[in-house]
C-alpha cells in the first residue's frame, strides 16, 4: 500500500499519457514506433538479415572455420584481385577529385547562363543511366572507335590499339561515371562558404591565390572528404563498368564475386569475398562517419 500511496495517481496517468499521447510538439512514443515500424521491418528483413545471413555462410560453410577468408587472403590470385581493386579505387578517386574540384569551383563562381550550362553538364550524366554511359565508353574505345580513329589521325599509332577490355578503360569509364558524386559534395561545401571570407582575406592582404589556399581550400575540405570517401567506397564495389569494359584476366572484386556465384557456384567463398569487401567498407565508413555528411551527396543542398 505504501508504495502505491507514494505514487500519486496523477503521475501514473501522466506516464500513461506520455506513452500513449502526443504532447503537441512531439509524437507519442507509441505513435513514433508505429510510424517507424514499416521502415525498420523493411530494412531489417530485406537489408540487414540477408547480409548477416550471407556473412554467416562465409564462416559456417562448408565447416565453421575462417578457411574461406584464409583462401581470399592467402591465394596470390585473389590477393592480387584485392590489391587491384584497391588500386583502381584509389586511382579513380584521385582522378575524379582532380577533375571535379575545378568544376565545382567554377560552378560557385559562375552566374546566369554559364551556371546553367555547367550544372546541366554535371547533372545530365548524373541522371542518365550508368549503362548508357558505359555503353558510350564501349563505343568510344572499340577497335574502330573514335579514340582509335583520333590516335591514328594524329599519327600516334599506325594501327588500332586495344583499348576496350583493359584496366585503362575501366578507370576512365569509372571516373566518368562517378564524377557527379565528387562534384556535388564539393560544390555543396564551396557554396556554403560566404564570399565575405574571401573579401576579408583580400582586405587583410592576401592575393587571390593565397586567399584560396588559406581560406577557401581548408573550408571546402569537408566536401572533398565526403566526395572522396563516397567515390572510393562506390568504386571498391563497382560491378557494371568492370564487368562490361574490363578484362576477364584482370578482375575486380565485384566481378570475381559474380564469377564465383554464376560460374563456379562456390557460395561460401563468394560470401567470404563479400565479407571482406563489406567489412573493409564498413570500417572506412565508421572511421569517417563523423566527417562525412552522406545526406549531402545529392548536391549538398540544405
Amino acid at each position: 500500500m505504501s508504495i502505491f500511496a507514494a505514487t500519486p495517481p496523477a503521475t501514473a496517468s501522466g506516464a500513461l499519457a506520455r506513452l500513449m499521447r502526443s504532447d503537441g510538439r512531439r509524437i507519442s512514443s507509441l505513435g513514433s514506433l508505429l510510424l517507424m515500424a514499416p521502415f525498420f521491418l523493411l530494412m531489417g528483413f530485406v537489408f540487414v538479415w540477408p547480409i548477416v545471413n550471407l556473412l554467416a555462410i562465409s564462416v559456417l560453410e562448408p565447416q565453421p572455420t575462417f578457411d574461406n577468408y584464409g583462401r581470399v587472403l592467402s591465394n596470390p590470385v585473389y590477393a592480387l584481385v584485392l590489391m587491384r581493386t584497391l588500386w583502381i579505387a584509389v586511382l579513380v578517386t584521385g582522378l575524379t577529385l582532380l577533375f571535379s574540384y575545378p568544376v565545382a569551383y567554377a560552378m560557385t563562381r559562375a552566374k546566369g547562363p554559364t551556371l546553367v550550362l555547367i550544372t546541366a553538364c554535371v547533372l545530365l550524366p548524373f541522371w542518365s543511366s550508368v549503362l548508357v554511359r558505359t555503353a558510350a565508353w564501349a563505343v568510344l574505345l572499340q577497335r574502330n572507335g573514335l579514340v582509335n580513329q583520333g590516335l591514328q589521325w594524329f599519327g600516334l599509332t599506325s594501327e588500332p590499339v586495344r583499348l576496350l577490355y583493359t584496366q585503362g578503360a575501366v578507370v576512365v569509364a569509372m571516373t566518368h561515371v562517378l564524377m557527379p558524386f565528387m562534384i556535388l559534395p564539393i560544390y555543396g561545401a564551396l557554396r556554403n562558404i560566404s564570399p565575405d571570407y574571401m573579401r576579408a582575406a583580400a582586405v587583410l592582404g592576401a592575393s587571390r591565390s593565397r586567399a584560396f589556399r588559406e581560406v577557401m581550400l581548408p573550408l571546402s575540405l569537408p566536401g572533398v572528404l565526403s566526395g572522396s570517401i563516397l567515390v572510393f567506397l562506390t568504386a571498391l564495389g563497382f560491378f557494371v563498368t568492370p564487368a562490361l569494359l574490363g578484362s576477364p584476366q584482370e578482375m575486380m572484386i565485384a566481378t570475381l564475386v559474380s564469377q564465383q556465384i554464376r560460374e563456379t557456384l562456390d557460395w561460401p567463398f563468394a560470401a567470404a569475398l563479400v565479407g571482406v569487401l563489406t567489412l573493409f567498407v564498413s570500417l572506412i565508413a565508421v572511421i569517417f562517419s563523423k566527417a562525412v555528411r552522406f545526406d549531402r551527396l545529392m548536391g549538398g543542398r540544405e
Binding site: F47, I51, I57, G237, F239
Partner: peptide, 15 residues
C-alpha cells in the same frame, strides 16, 4: 549507400 550494391545484390539473391 555504404555497402556495395554487389554485396546487397548477392545477399538478396540468396534471400
Amino acid at each position: 549507400i555504404v555497402i556495395p550494391h554487389i554485396a546487397i545484390a548477392v545477399s538478396l539473391y540468396m534471400f
